[in-house]
Design a protein around this nucleic acid. Structure first.
Lengths: 195, 195
DNA sequence: ACAAGTTGCAACACTGATGTCGCAACGAAG
DNA sequence: CTTCGTTGCGACATCAGTGTTGCAACTTGT
C-alpha cells in the first residue's frame, strides 16, 4: 500500500497514508496533471510528508491504483457473480462498482498501476466475461452478440453512468444501475421498429 | 488556425502547419503529456519551428482542437441531420464522425480548446439533440427515454467504437457504425425477456 | 516519563520543459 | 536574379516540479 517499505506504521501514520490517498484521488480526478504540492495541500500535510510515504509520484499513483483495484475486486465479489442468478448479479455488481468508481474514478482509470493492478483488472475483466457468458446461457443476453463488444459497451456505460453518481448529492445508485442495465439490454429504440 | 498572427503564410509554411498539427494529434493521442520536442520530432521539424507557428503549447492544443472541431461539424453537416430521414442521418453521421474522430481523437476529446471550440461542440451537441428528437417523433426512439441520457449513451458508444476504427487497418466503418446504432436501439438483451 | 516514530519547515540540488534569440542557409515568388 | 519568408541550429534564460536532507517540535505507545 505505502511504498518506501513494508514495515508496520504507527496508527497516526497509517491514517496519514489514507488521507493522502483520498486527497490524491480527489485532486487527480479533477486535474490528472496536478502536482505533489497540490495533493499535499488537499491532504493538509506538507509535501515532504507525502514523499516520506510514497517515494515517488509514480509510486503514489501505483498505490492509489492498487487500493482502488482491491476495492473494485471486493465490489464485484460481493455480488456473487459466479453463483447468484446472473441478472441479479449484474444489477448488484453494477451498483457496487458504480459506488466504488464514483469514489476512486481516477485511480481506476489510470493505466499506470503496475503489474499487480494489471492482474487485478484482468481478473475482474475475466469475471465480467464469465458473468456475461452466464447471462447468455440464461437467455438474458442474445446469443448472437459479440461477447467482447458486449463487455466494452457495458464498461462504457458504467463509465458514463458514473458521472451521475459523482455529480449529484445523495444519488440513487440503484436507480442509476437499473437504468444502465436497462439500456444495455433493451437499448433505446422502439421494440417493434426498424433494423 | 495558426496562432502568432493571422497574416497570410507562404505555401510551404502552410504545409508545415498542417504537418505539425497531424504530428501533434498522432503523438498526443498516444501520450497526452508528450513534449513540444516529441511533436517536433514526429513532424520532422525543429522545435523552434513549432514555436514559430504556435507561440505556446496551449495555443497548439487550441489550434488542434479548433481544426478538429471544424472537421467534426463538417462531418455531421454532411449527413443532413435536419432534412434526411432521421435514421438514415443517424447512420450517416455516425459513420462520418467515426472517421473524423479516429483521425483526430485527442483533439476532439480535449477540453482545453478555448471559446471557439466550445461553441462548436455546443452546436454539434444541440444538433445531436435535435436529431434524437426527430428520431423520437419518427417512433424510432422510444418516447419515454431521457433525451440527455440517450445522447450521453450515444456519445459513449461512439467513443468506444472509435477504437475499432483506429485499431484495425482498413476498418469497415459502415459496419462498425451499423453495430453501434444497432446496439443503441436494440441493446444486447433478448427481445422478449426480463425487465 | 521515556523512547521511538512522525511531522512541518526551510533549504538545496537536479532535472526537464518552455519560450526566446541571432545567425546562416535555403527556397519560393516576383 | 533578387528579395524576403522560412527553417535548422545552437545557445540561453527561466520556471516548475521532483526528490533529498537536517532539525526542531510534537505525538504515540509502552
Amino acid at each position: 500500500m505505502s511504498d518506501v517499505s513494508t514495515r508496520p506504521l504507527r496508527a497516526d501514520a497509517e491514517r496519514t497514508v489514507r488521507t493522502i490517498l483520498e486527497a490524491a484521488e480527489r485532486v487527480l480526478a479533477r486535474d490528472p496533471s496536478a502536482t505533489m504540492e497540490d495533493i499535499a495541500a488537499a491532504a493538509g500535510v506538507a509535501r515532504t510528508t507525502v514523499h516520506r510515504r510514497f517515494s515517488t509520484r509514480e509510486a503514489l499513483i501505483a498505490a492509489l491504483a492498487s487500493w482502488a483495484g482491491r476495492q473494485l475486486e471486493a465490489a464485484v465479489a460481493a455480488a456473487r457473480p459466479e453463483s447468484a442468478p446472473p441478472l441479479v448479479a449484474l444489477y448488484q455488481a453494477t451498483a457496487n462498482v458504480l459506488r466504488v468508481k464514483a469514489a476512486w474514478g481516477f485511480a481506476m482509470d489510470t493505466a499506470h498501476g503496475g503489474a499487480e493492478v494489471e492482474a487485478i483488472q484482468c481478473r475482474v475483466l475475466e469475471g465480467c466475461d464469465r458473468l456475461f457468458r452466464r447471462l447468455q446461457d440464461a437467455g438474458v443476453l442474445r446469443a448472437d452478440v459479440d461477447p467482447v463488444w458486449a463487455r466494452r459497451v457495458y464498461y462504457a456505460l458504467v463509465h458514463e453512468a458514473c458521472r451521475d453518481v459523482t455529480g449529484e448529492s445523495d444519488p440513487d445508485v440503484d436507480a442509476i444501475a437499473t437504468r444502465l442495465v436497462d439500456t444495455l439490454l433493451r437499448g433505446m429504440g422502439t421494440p417493434g421498429a426498424p433494423l
